[in-house]
Write a protein that binds this DNA or RNA. Structure first.
Length: 738
DNA sequence: ATTAGGCGATTTTTT
DNA sequence: ATCGCCTAAT
């Protein structure tokens, strides 16, 4: 009981009642993780067997840290708590139960790229034009449907246009293809357990008994499937404790439903509600700013976040000439603050809306000798050469995995092209074989040249031999042997270009990751490694011990805190980001994202925007974000090009109109470019705006997603219902406003 | 007839 | 940095 004294009174209340449904509405920085940790520890302490506890976190990193903390509190028995992300925990359940669903235990987990390839394959096989129907759009339609637990039949019956009909058709085939490949996508990891539980009450009962106590972190970001899954599991004992903050719901774009947290007490009328409203993280100033921003959102649980912390310094707004200048100003600030506030590099975070923004920031940091690490962006496991090697390993563990086989087939190049692949696929289809089995029968496939046939047989033989080696060697030995025989390391080395050297390093790094994994988990097999690789997020790999400035997206920053944080690119079109039409719902999500960013900061917060920004290789002249107008002016300090001036109280919308003045005063080269005069333009092209519905002679109706460039080179990105997104040069496109 | 390699276009956020 | 398309090379 001793450790309860570490909690404040309201935190202690939330930890006291261990049975029945509980909802904890926890504001940013209010010690939510702490409460969850102590609650779990207490369950163990009062005698609940650790394996009866299921704790779902948003990242694996959070789970790992929480597990360590719990072990400190109650000892190592806590090791058998089921703690991790929804996806990893239910992948684990599926490893045990997949055979009841018609999948092998050795199923492969497909990421978005893999799944897109399956969609394309299915479309090709059905003779559906990839030009006419955007495979990407179809894939996301399928994923959306799955997350809402809607099947292909329902998509078909609700179809209102040809796109819906095609999606439904592809959806049905896609699901079959996935099963043939013995593969599951991210959505399947949630949807398949639901099906299993729904159709097999005995198994559901087993898991209800097993997981008698369920805890869920970041409940505001759960989707329909996750919601149903929890409902099924908790139906018997109703020991379900959810923790979340509706103000920090930022994943609606991937199906998260904020209603899950808003309506929790409707689902469980007897639920006890606790509020954590004391913030321990931020200064009064930062909290006040966060509050003044978020109160512009309508749909939320009322709460009153407060703090005993000191007032702190005003929040500084950095007005920058362009993205380059933004980087320079930030770098200078960091160096100043390190001296002035005795901070370390690792105390700083640079947050942005899109990964692309990291480039200019990196340049500035590098030039100033500031060490940094980037979370996300181009991930290690997404790199081509790494995916290639992984494809071989996947085929080794799951010979039915056709998608990985296709990737492995011609890597490195051995003269197998599209035509051969098509013949192979046709042959396999006819004989009802997997592609790997088909390749063993290459002798029977007609119209193949001797060389091609030989190449196919070689690949078949290659896998046969390594499948044997897999039974007598450790996973790291097999991987090493395989890579050696493929000769890709040698090839990269001979090439000798910086790019090839980087690839060489990446493959080496993958091999050491495998060794490391197998020494950390002596019992684990290759399947386990591949699963881990599929389900790790970028943030899981982030090393916070390293003394370096952290760069990441606002999404990745959720749940973290930093003594000093910069939120960059506070511009219309970027934060809030314009995608399709920015409806009120989308705008509120963008605002919550900004709120998440603000509340990451402990002592110092900086907000920056630029008057000129390069996007998609074009120059844009964004206005300062509308969110800046929502901040109370008295807590702000405005900084222009290194000169400090206290904010005089005029709205930022004033600055917004005077972009040109800002540019004219600058000394940068960019300012010598002729400045387009939007206001006095009479041309109809100039009257186009983001969000407008337009008509194009060839593509038909569409919505303007973004505008870029100036004058002759002005371009619009338009989302057409028929063909998906297109970049159009307005000079030629002759769009008509509908 | 096939395949490899060059070139240009493209990037919201992520389990 | 990668993907898809086009053309040269085999």
């Amino acid at each position: 009981m001793s450790f309860l004294s570490d909690l404040n009174p309201s935190q202690r209340e939330a930890v006291k009642i261990l049975e029945g449904p509980v909802i904890i509405v926890a504001g940013a920085g209010s010690g939510k993780t702490r409460v969850l940790t102590y609650r779990t520890a207490r369950l163990v302490q009062v005698g609940v067997p650790a394996y009866q506890i299921l704790a779902l976190t948003f990242t694996n990193k959070a789970a790992k840290e929480m597990k360590e903390r719990i072990a400190q509190l109650v000892g190592s028995s806590s090791k058998s708590i089921w703690m991790g992300t929804f996806h990893s925990m239910f992948a684990r359940v599926l490893r045990l139960e997949s055979e009841k669903l018609g999948y092998g235990r050795n199923f492969t987990i497909y990421d978005e790229q893999d799944s897109l390839k399956v969609v394309k394959n299915v479309m090709n096989a059905q003779g559906i034009s990839l030009q006419q129907f955007n495979p990407q759009a179809i894939r996301s339609r399928i994923s959306g449907a799955k997350n809402r637990l809607v099947g292909p039949e329902e998509v078909a019956s609700q179809a209102v246009d040809q796109f819906d009909e095609v999606s439904a058709k592809v959806f049905a085939r896609y699901q079959k293809a996935m099963k043939r490949n013995n593969a599951m996508d991210f959505d399947d990891l949630l949807v398949l357990p639901i099906h299993l539980f729904e159709h097999n009450k005995k198994i559901l009962n087993d898991y209800q008994e097993r997981f008698r106590f369920i805890l869920v972190d970041e409940y505001q970001d759960t989707n329909k499937a996750q919601y149903v899954l929890l409902k099924q599991l908790a139906a018997k004992y109703k020991n379900i404790c959810v923790v979340g903050d509706d103000a920090q719901s930022i994943y609606a774009f991937r199906g998260a439903e904020i209603r899950n947290i808003l309506d929790y007490q409707v689902d469980y009328p007897e639920a006890k509600l606790f509020r954590l409203e004391q913030n321990y993280r931020s200064t009064k100033t930062i909290l006040a700013i966060a509050d003044s921003v978020i109160k512009n959102n309508v749909d939320q649980i009322p709460k009153n976040l407060w703090t005993d912390n000191q007032t702190g310094e005003p929040v500084a707004i950095l007005e920058c000439a362009d993205d380059k200048d933004e980087g320079i100003q930030i770098a200078q600030r960091i160096l100043e603050d390190i001296y002035r506030l005795k901070l370390d590099f690792k105390d700083f975070a640079l947050l942005y809306r899109t990964n692309a923004q990291s480039r200019s920031l990196e340049d500035a940091l590098r030039k100033n000798g500031i060490p940094y690490t980037i979370v996300g962006g181009i991930e290690f496991y997404q790199r081509k050469e790494v995916k290639d090697v992984l494809a071989f390993l996947r085929v080794l563990t799951n010979p039915l995995d056709n998608e990985s086989f296709l990737r492995a087939l011609n890597c490195p190049n051995r003269g197998i092209g599209d035509v051969t692949v098509e013949r192979l696929q046709a042959f396999a289809e006819r004989k009802g074989l997997s592609l790997l089995d088909a390749v063993h029968h290459a002798a029977e496939i007609s119209h193949l040249g001797a060389r091609t046939r030989g190449a196919l047989l070689w690949v078949g033989d290659f896998f046969k031999r390594h499948q044997h080696l897999k039974t007598i060697m450790s996973m790291s030995e097999v991987s090493r042997t395989m890579v050696d025989e493929l000769g890709i390391l040698r090839q990269f080395k001979e090439e000798g270009t910086p790019d090839a050297i980087a690839r060489w390093e990446n493959v080496q790094e993958l091999l050491s990751a495998i060794s490391e994994f197998s020494s950390e988990h002596p019992e684990a097999n290759l399947e386990n490694f591949l699963e881990e690789v599929s389900l790790v997020s970028d943030i899981d790999n982030w090393d916070d011990a390293h003394n370096a400035v952290t760069l990441m997206t606002l999404h990745s920053a959720k749940g973290l805190e930093f003594p000093a944080a910069f939120i960059t690119g506070l511009e219309e079109g970027l934060l809030p980001l314009f995608t399709t039409v920015l409806g009120n719902k989308e705008l509120e999500e963008e605002r919550r994202l900004f709120y998440v960013g603000i509340t990451r900061a402990m002592r110092n917060l900086y907000l920056s925007f630029a008057g000129v920004r390069y996007r998609y290789g074009d120059v844009t002249y964004p206005s300062p974000s509308r969110f800046l107008d929502e901040i109370g002016s008295e807590r702000i300090q405005r900084i222009t090009s290194g000169k400090h001036s206290s904010f005089s109280g005029d709205e930022f919308s004033g600055t917004r109109r005077s972009n040109r003045r800002v540019r004219a005063e600058g000394s940068s080269d960019y300012f010598t470019d002729p400045i387009p005069d939007y206001e006095n333009a009479t041309d109809t092209v100039q009257s186009l705006q983001v969000g407008m519905t337009v008509h194009h002679d060839v593509f038909g109706k569409g919505r303007i997603v973004s505008l870029s460039g100036t004058g002759e080179s002005m371009k619009a990105s338009v989302e057409f219902s028929s063909v998906g997104r297109k970049q159009l040069l307005l000079k030629y496109a002759r769009l008509k406003v509908v």
